[in-house]
């Protein structure tokens, strides 16, 4: 098995762990963390394809990952702020109970 395939298997496994976490847990923070894991898995793919491409065009994969990390940081900040706002309204952060649109 070539290293590229190993990298891709690694990233798919990480993606699926994140997906299962996001689907199966009902705590909002854990769901957000699952989404972060999926983003990381995507970044691994970028780096893997950059590393093992036949002619690595200068740094495209690396730049993608840098942008992706920046956006992920923004996403984490907004997501957790939303979690805190939800908690203030209904005093818990279980996903099922955050079903009302009007606070």
């Amino acid at each position: 098995m070539s290293p590229l395939q190993l990298c891709l298997l690694f990233s798919s496994a990480l993606f699926c762990i994140g997906l299962i976490g996001a689907l199966a847990r009902s705590n909002t923070i854990l769901v957000l963390l699952g989404i972060e894991l999926m983003l990381n898995a995507a970044n691994i793919n970028f780096i893997a394809f950059w590393r093992f491409s036949p002619s690595p065009s200068p740094a495209t994969g690396v730049l993608f990952v840098i942008f992706s990390i920046a956006v992920a940081a923004a996403e984490a900040a907004v997501g957790l702020a939303l979690v805190i706002a939800v908690y203030r309204h209904q005093k818990n952060i279980r996903l099922q109970e955050a079903a009302r649109l009007k606070g």
Binding site: E36, W50, R51, I69, A70, L80
Partner: peptide, 22 residues
């Protein structure tokens, strides 16, 4: 994979910042 810069950025952003927010 040889992407030093990204590795350090990942540690700085995720281990340093996102972890604290979480």
């Amino acid at each position: 994979a040889g992407a030093e810069f990204v590795a350090f950025a990942e540690v700085l952003v995720y281990v340093g910042a996102v972890s604290m927010v979480v």
